[in-house]
Amino acid sequence: MEETELQNELASIRSIMERSSKFISLSGLSGILAGVYALVGAGAAYKIIEDAHSKLEEAILRVRAQEPLVTTTPSFNSYVTDYSSLNWKLFAIAVIVLIASITTAILLSIRQAKRKNQPMWGSASRSLVFHTMVPLMAGGCLIAVLVFFKLNHFYHPYYGLVAPASLIFYGLALVSASNFTFGEVKYLGICEIILGLIAACLPGHGLLFWALGFGLLHIIYGARIYFKYDK
């Protein structure tokens, strides 16, 4: 055996150990795109919230001023309905962003897996999905409880915890998944957790922290992965 042959042997062992235990076919581009979707979604959510707020405020002002709501404008009740349908609209935006991000990630990973000669649905990707889903499902269920818990029709005491909880559980999911893919995922996870804890201290800014955590951080992480591994 020649020296280069020996070195090739060692290199191939290293590569096969990595390919067998880590899903290295995640694409940086899908991280960047997920960040962009999240920013667009946050922008849309901001617009919807602002509209609903200003309509509601207008209605309240009119009632305070004892000004009868003119028949041509929608009644006060419809303003209130508008306001409560807000949650469903925001939920719809979140779901659309989530589905778009996951679809993009899967499609780009299939391409990357072909290029890196790694099975798309193998032992590594199965472990990756499992270790992501456990914290994510726990967080999702907790958030569902937080959302539906209300003291009366108007008072949802735990609403403010939705943004911090989603960031924290997403971060935990990333940290737990990081053993089965690029090490950078761990740092992204830690950043999400820190951001979630900061968000918990600053209630009322949930959307801003969502935009930072799911938008900005994803773009930074995606760009790093893209330049380091995608080439």
Binding site: I13, I16, M17, S20, S21, G122, S123
Partner: peptide
């Protein structure tokens, strides 16, 4: 054989089909 051992050194357990796909 060396490749099989590499995979089993890096993973606690590995199943036949995944091993087959990985090594081609």
């Amino acid at each position: 054989r060396l490749q099989i051992m590499s995979v089993l050194a890096a993973n606690e357990r590995y199943d036949f089909n995944s091993l087959k796909d990985l090594l081609g």
